[in-house]
């Protein structure tokens, strides 16, 4: 259901559970929102978002957690920090999106941009195994797993010729030191070392 964002809010009728949760867990108080819309005006990807930052804050107020966790904007936010930087009330909207993304993933909610999640999960696996990101193997793995075998092949060859893509880049020596920072199981590459 597409929520009606433009109806007046009956403060004592809205659940406000998410709003309270954000305040308790993140220390972010959206009560101070001035509704000025500077966040949406500046948003780098606002023109392709299903819900712009201003609407996202409104959805939090209205308690539409489900809509928020399913929205496309969650996966194409660039974390460019523009909305936060311009917000006169200093509301950390990118941080709210990080929180909702993590929660949506924990709940197994279907992702609108599976390739974005796949790329990030492969990157995390690279860090778990080596402590650092190996860019070229990551790109190859992403193409393979997303079924886009020839994506950017021509560009890749050019970059390879320039020495920009190395197959071997050094990992962290003390791998255990990094591994213990991971609390969750690997999402991709299960069973492989």
């Amino acid at each position: 259901m597409v929520p009606n964002l433009y109806r007046p809010i009956h403060l004592d009728k809205t659940a406000g559970a998410l709003q309270v949760e954000l305040k308790q867990v993140l220390g972010i108080d959206i009560e101070v929102c001035l509704e000025c819309g500077k966040c949406s005006g500046g948003c780098s990807n606002g023109h392709i978002f299903d819900y712009t930052p201003r609407k996202i804050v409104q959805l939090v107020k209205l308690g539409f957690e489900d809509t928020l966790m399913k929205m496309d904007a969650l996966w194409i936010c660039l974390s460019c920090q523009l909305c936060l930087d311009r917000c006169p009330a200093g509301i950390d909207i990118p941080r709210i999106l990080d929180y909702l993304r993590e929660k949506a993933r924990r709940k197994g909610i279907t992702v609108t941009r599976p390739n974005v999640l796949l790329f990030q999960e492969l990157m995390l696996d690279s860090i778990r195994k080596r402590g650092k990101v190996a860019e070229f193997p990551l790109m190859l793995k992403f193409n393979f797993k997303s079924g886009q075998y020839l994506k950017d092949a021509g560009l890749g060859m050019k970059m390879f010729a320039k020495g920009k893509l190395s197959l071997l880049s050094p990992g962290v020596q003390n791998k255990e030191d990094v591994r213990r920072l991971f609390t969750s199981e690997p999402a991709q590459d299960k069973g492989k070392t």
């Binding site: 990080d98 999960e121 995390l124 962290v172 920072l181």
Partner: peptide
């Protein structure tokens, strides 16, 4: 022996991890 700073993937998916990686 530095490790990944925690940007991008870790930042996007796991807040505790991104703090841990940067902190190390």
């Amino acid at each position: 022996d530095w490790n990944c700073c925690g940007a991008s993937a870790a930042h996007s998916l796991d807040q505790e991890l991104t703090m841990g990686l940067a902190s190390r």
